[in-house]
Design a protein around this nucleic acid. Structure first.
Lengths: 212, 212
DNA sequence: TCCTCCCTGTCAATTCATTGACATAATTTT
DNA sequence: AAAATTATGTCAATGAATTGACAGGGAGGA
């Protein structure tokens, strides 16, 4: 299926295309040209065509792109046509917030388990899912066909937990801990470093002041 | 201060340098060469030197970089040497999680107010801060020297709220709503699109399967 | 059916980012 | 004090990403 390696720059733009196409679809719009999309999304039409062509010719000359079709195709490319089983490790505020955020489920990302090392928290239910102790994690991952682990734990324990997860066949880690994980190549890690993001904003605020 | 424009690629790496330098500092290490940093951080030494030189010559030939000094300098570049006043708009799970996440305060990002449109939620206290109704937001921003607004609200209301914030002199928006905000150029927007991030992970999971 | 216009897919050109190479300066060793 | 080593700052070379240009394949109207 994948012939040439797709750059992460392109991959990073796919969800945004997907979002805008979804909106157009909801508005009942059937066709769209790269130029129209360009106007809406504030990227060049050339980039849109270039990006989409990495995955095949979805458009038609003289017509443009069929919104519904393109939406579905990008969804498939992103792997949204099938379900993913997730667990959350770390039942703190952030972990709970993610479990309660329904939009993930709508896209096929289903939370199957929650784990926490604090025995006080274990047994509590979050959105119908019982928090389990850490020692149950590895067997749970193996027995329930878990694809993705979401790490919402302090960085001190994240490295160790990532190793455990690597050992029991997890495929991907969505990492909110403020540390870079070293895992085998077969495991994909997607980092969400919130404080990095906030610092970037802070930088851009200060640099802006002097630019004037 | 800023002579040439620094690319966002560089800015995006600064927090990571900052983090690793902080760790070295905590370990009591005083000096580090670009080559040593390169080994630890898994980026090329050349890139490290190139990046740092955008902001000045922090190192010394034959010696390397002084960890503490470089840490402080990058902190200043990132604007962490002064406090930022923040408000949260949207007291849902995610908003609460962010308020409760102490690490931001440690870096000088102080939450001054929380706002929500749900009158049921207003009046409740989150970490000592009373949730206020939306109509108080604009005057609060003006009167309390608020720099940054954190949007943890659904996308439907985010656009409107962003406009209100633009009107009352906010400088930056940390946007967790799943929508692209259109605000005047003077306002910096940093997006955290969690579902985009998860979709990227999903893509990389599927593409990996076929690559083997 | 034919003609005109539209818009993609793709190639080429340009811009931007990363890596490599090295002259030079400070440190450390002898 | 001199020699050897270390490691920066910077320039040049390479590589990657974005933009521009256009041939040619439909679509839509007459």
């Amino acid at each position: 299926m994948e012939e040439k390696e797709i750059s992460q720059a392109v991959v990073g733009r796919l969800p945004r295309y997907f979002r805008y196409l979804g909106e157009l679809k909801d508005e009942g719009i059937e066709r769209v040209s790269s130029q129209e999309l360009s106007d809406i999304m504030q990227v060049t039409a050339s980039q849109i065509r270039q990006d989409l062509n990495n995955f095949g010719g979805f458009g038609q000359q003289g017509y443009g792109y069929n919104v519904g079709f393109l939406y579905d195709e990008i969804g498939k490319i992103l792997g949204l046509h099938r379900e993913h089983n997730l667990i959350i490790v770390g039942a703190g505020h952030l972990g709970q917030a993610l479990v309660n955020y329904m939009n993930f489920e709508r896209r096929g990302f289903i939370f199957r388990g929650i784990f926490d090392k604090d025995s006080q928290v274990c047994g509590r239910k979050i959105r119908g899912i019982t928090v389990q102790p850490m020692k149950e994690m590895e067997s749970f991952v193996r027995e329930n066909d878990i694809d993705i682990a979401v790490l919402t734990i302090p960085k001190t324990s994240a490295v160790e937990v990532a190793e455990q997860l690597a050992g029991c066949g997890i495929k991907g880690i969505w990492n909110f801990a403020h540390v870079d994980l070293r895992v085998p190549d077969r495991i994909q890690v997607e980092n969400v470093h919130l404080s990095d993001s906030l610092m970037k904003l802070s930088y851009n605020l200060s640099s802006r002041e002097f630019a004037e």
